[in-house]
Each structure stands twice: as structure tokens, then as C-alpha cells.
């Protein structure tokens, strides 16, 4: 059988190459700046790098030291508390607001932008604002005192045990409106006839949401979880602006830990090891999700 397909004309061959050529700068950048850099950082985490990178292989020593550091344990514990509360509260508020907004609310067009605008701000601005609002001297506590509620106390931001919760408050304020938008889009995507059928079947509003609507919002829950958890692991700016990691080291998170160990405490190897652990955490969450997304679209 003769293969007569050997000689494509110049134009066809050119048109075959142009797309790959166009894609190649982005691909090259990605391979170097993302995956190459990841490989490099992973390598550094196995070296004795201090202030500058060194290339001596010391095995898992950095990881062993890292898990022996109380600072790291503080950061990890804080991340656990923060991520759990941040994700849970954002989801509850987001879902609640979305369901309520979906009740043919007059003024929906005005309320939605109000709920959403915080996400246009940088965490630095959010942190600055909430830092002073929660400051006992001039913030909420002072206001309540001036309004006559003398016994009101709200000094969490200065309290080692409570400061991490102020981070949760500010972060929830910034992101919960966005979660609301995700759920609202999910709600609006549900086929109205399903709701009508459920009502004809005699479902109360409560049961309608519990048994029909919320299960149907599963994809929105999944997206919200993925986005929020990845934001939680990456949280850095908010801590810097709101508490600076303090009081003391009470609100340290892995992101701030990595930065300070790498750039101010001259323990680049340990910093790299902590970054690798952060990456692994996010990869564990993102990879199955992205895999499912891509498979579904292919």
C-alpha cells in the first residue's frame, strides 16, 4: 500500500508549526519558572543552604529539623485552625447568603456588589483596616465603650491565644462574598422544573434545600473548597498586614515561616523544606480536582 501522504505542501506544514511556535514561549517559561524552580527548591531542601544556596547533599536533615522546630509546629497548628474555620465559615455564610438572595429579593442588584467588593481589595488593605477596627484602643471596643457598653471587651488581636481568630475574621470578610457568588451561580444553574417537581411531591422549603438543592450544589461546594483551601495555604499578606505574625509568633503561618527562615534567619534549607511541604499540601488538594476537571472537558 503506497503511503501517498508524505509531501504536504509548504503552507500546510507551516500551519502545523505555527501553533506550536506560538505556544512555546509560554511553555518554556512555565517549564523553567514553575517546574524547574520547583525542582530547584526541592533540591535546596536537601542541602545545607544557609544565607546562600549551597549544593551539598544532606538528605532529610532539614525536614527532620523542621519538624523539630516549635515555630513550625505553631505555624502548622495555626494553619489547621485558620484553614478549618476560614473554609467552614466562608462556606456557611456564602451558602446562606446565596440561598437568601435567591428568594426573589428586591434590591438584589444592590446587595450583591456590596457583598463582593472586598475581594477587589488587596489583603494588605484588608489587614490595615481590620487591624485598627479590632484594636482595643481605637476600634470596636472603644466604640462600644463610647456607646455605653462599658464592660465590652474585644482584645483578641493583642491576645496570643486568640489572635489567630482575628485573622479568620478578616479573611472571611474578604472572601465570603466571593463564595456567595459561586453558590449563587450554582443555584441559578439548577433546573427550575426539578424544584417544581419537588414541591409537587410535597417537599417543604427546608426539605427542598436539604434533600434536593444542596446535594445538587456539590460541584460548587467542591470548587469553593478547592479555592478556599488553596488561599488558606498561601495566606501571607494578610498576616503581615494584620498581625505581623504576632503577638510574638502567635499567628505565624507556613507562608510567613518560610519567608522569615529563608530571608531573615538565613536557614534557606529549612525554608525550602517548608515550601516543599506547602506545595505538597496544595498538590494533594488540587491534583485530583484538576484531573477530574480536565477529564470531564476532554
Amino acid at each position: 500500500m503506497a503511503n501517498s501522504n508524505t509531501q504536504a505542501d509548504f503552507r500546510t506544514r507551516l500551519q502545523d508549526w505555527i501553533p506550536k511556535l506560538v505556544l512555546s514561549p509560554s511553555l518554556a517559561a512555565m517549564l523553567v519558572f514553575v517546574y524547574g524552580f520547583i525542582a530547584f527548591t526541592v533540591y535546596l531542601s536537601f542541602t545545607g543552604s544557609k544565607m546562600l544556596p549551597k549544593y551539598d547533599w544532606i538528605g532529610f536533615e532539614n525536614y527532620a529539623r523542621l519538624w523539630g522546630l516549635s515555630h513550625w509546629w505553631t505555624a502548622i497548628t495555626n494553619l489547621g485552625i485558620f484553614a478549618f474555620l476560614y473554609i467552614t465559615i466562608c462556606t456557611i455564610i456564602g451558602l446562606g447568603l446565596a440561598i437568601f438572595l435567591d428568594q426573589k429579593i428586591r434590591g438584589e442588584g444592590m446587595l450583591r456588589p456590596i457583598y463582593l467588593y472586598p475581594m477587589a481589595l488587596s489583603f494588605i488593605v484588608t489587614g490595615t483596616a481590620w487591624k485598627w477596627i479590632m484594636d482595643p484602643g481605637i476600634g470596636i471596643e472603644n466604640t462600644m465603650h463610647l456607646w455605653g457598653w462599658e464592660s465590652f471587651e474585644f482584645g483578641w488581636i493583642k491576645d496570643r491565644d486568640m489572635a489567630i481568630y482575628t485573622v479568620v475574621i478578616a479573611a472571611v470578610w474578604q472572601t465570603s462574598g466571593f463564595v456567595m457568588a459561586m453558590f449563587l451561580a450554582g443555584l441559578r444553574g439548577i433546573d427550575n422544573e426539578i424544584l417544581k417537581a419537588a414541591q409537587i411531591d410535597g417537599a417543604s422549603n427546608w426539605n427542598l434545600y436539604r434533600r434536593i438543592v444542596i446535594p445538587l450544589l456539590r460541584p460548587a461546594f467542591l470548587s469553593a473548597f478547592v479555592i478556599l483551601s488553596h488561599l488558606a495555604v498561601k495566606s501571607y499578606d494578610l498576616i503581615i498586614a494584620l498581625t505581623g505574625g504576632g503577638p510574638g509568633r502567635a499567628t505565624e503561618l507556613p507562608a510567613t515561616f518560610m519567608y522569615s527562615y529563608t530571608f531573615t534567619r538565613n536557614s534557606m534549607g529549612i525554608g525550602a523544606a517548608s515550601a516543599v511541604i506547602m506545595l505538597m499540601t496544595i498538590a494533594a488538594i488540587m491534583t485530583p480536582y484538576l484531573y477530574a476537571e480536565l477529564k470531564e472537558k476532554a
Partner: peptide, 17 residues
């Protein structure tokens, strides 16, 4: 075309844009 030929007006068009 994986194999074989398509021709239009006696001109083989395999690989022609």
C-alpha cells in the same frame, strides 16, 4: 489522510491546504 489518495481534477490533493 492516513493512506490512499484523494484527487480533484486529476490533481492529488493529499497534504494540500
Amino acid at each position: 489522510i492516513t493512506s490512499g489518495e484523494v484527487s480533484i481534477k486529476d490533481r492529488v490533493v493529499n497534504g494540500v491546504h
